[in-house]
Write a protein that binds this DNA or RNA. Sequence first.
RNA 1: GGAGAGAUGGCUGAGUGGCCGAAAGCGAUCGCCUGCUAAGCGAUUGUACGCCCAUUAAAGGUGUACCGCGGGUUCGAAUCCCGCUCUCUCCGCCA
Length: 427
Amino acid sequence: MLDIKFVKQHIKMVQAKLDQRGQKIDLGPFTELDQKRRDILMELETLRFVRNTVSKEIGEKKQNKEDASDIISKAAEVSVKIKTLEEELVGTEENLRNFLMTIPNIPHESVVYGKGADDNPVIRTWGEKPLFPFPPKPHWEIGENLNILDFARAAKITGARFTLYRGMGALLERALINFMLDLHTTEHGYTEMLPPFMVNVNSMTGTGQLPKFADDLFKVEKTDYFLIPTAEVPITNIHREEILNEKDMPIYYTAYTPCFRSEAGSYGKDTRGLIRQHQFNKVEMVKFTTPETSYDELEKLTLNAEEVLKRLNIHYRTVSLCTGDLGFSSAKTYDVEAWLPGQKTYREISSCSNFEDFQARRASIRFRRSNGKVEFVHTLNGSGLAVGRTVVAVLENYQQPNGDAAIPEALKPYMKGIDRITAKGLA
RNA sequence: GGAGAGAUGGCUGAGUGGCCGAAAGCGAUCGCCUGCUAAGCGAUUGUACGCCCAUUAAAGGUGUACCGCGGGUUCGAAUCCCGCUCUCUCCGCCA
């Protein structure tokens, strides 16, 4: 959510920035609602002042055993008016808040203007595309040939867009999770968390999934809970409605969780393989920082994500999302895209964002400066990494002429020391 | 699932209708004292929103709201009533 005062004072600039996102967002109702709110509030506060004064008077009279019936009836009248105005105020504030809740964040000044993914500038690349003396296969073929990924049976068990991992495939997924968590906790300074995988409406609202994106979520029947679409939600909400100490910041958390996404509106896209699933695993990194350090922290966060691919020796590039491709809550986002030789394409494997105070204001996450002043924190998060897609990257980049998949050196300690995955077990 | 107890400021904890935004203690901050530390003394110590002043803002002044959340009673609610949520204890069930 944007800052009411800021929007009020810089309405033209905010409108111009939002226009760069390429969606039609009209701030007109904002000015109107805000004015209405202040008008009501002023009148209401005056009446409350009257009531408080009169009530005090009544109390004094009663104590002196004087008759107070005349002013009591007057006070009653005032109270009736107050009640009406209070209802009006609640309604107006709700409208204002609901309106602001649907307004996306303002892109940072360093974010380039663009219409969509094709306009995202490449910031850097690492490594090189590996050369294969044979046509590299897509991961779904490798995985099925090795009998480690079973899409057909997952569809039987549940439905489309789910995967059953088998044997070394399951181990590979688990190994990646542990490898990533160990890297972030022991070398990058993050504290590991294991949060609930379902959250309530307030948490979803705090990070921006609700009210606008309910269609993307799975709701648990007979409850008000939702399955998390990313660990960002429970982890960022750890400090919802709290005031942190400046000296405790920045705070770094990392967490492995499964993620559940309905992928509404993506029919026909990425229907094969592990790329787009209703359930997938992810290791997430979340930061709470002061406003003055958040952009430095975003750079570090992105490098932390990239480090995973470096250790696995997988070629990637990092792009900066342009204004038209930026997510709702984000002021600036870097996507790390791994090279997938089987599909001859770069594919997003991590997304690292600075939300500035957008989530913090929604979720009321603040900190107290050493001089006592209270301000909103900046929140950041990034995948470190999407585990299923990392499996894809490993299988496609490490595939062998005979169909085996080699194990990256860094992963061997997590894979019982084996060198490669070979086909075995019942088909 | 059944029975009971509770939810107050950073923490502990008082407060059963007006004198309570809230005692006391702890903690914290600043100052004094001190060779240093500790102790001691003094002061300060919630958040949000509105208005005034000022205008880059801050500070300041003033008002309103907030004692888990939501409603009700009342001229007036932390305090009384109702609903909900959460926590704790006991019993049952359970990975």
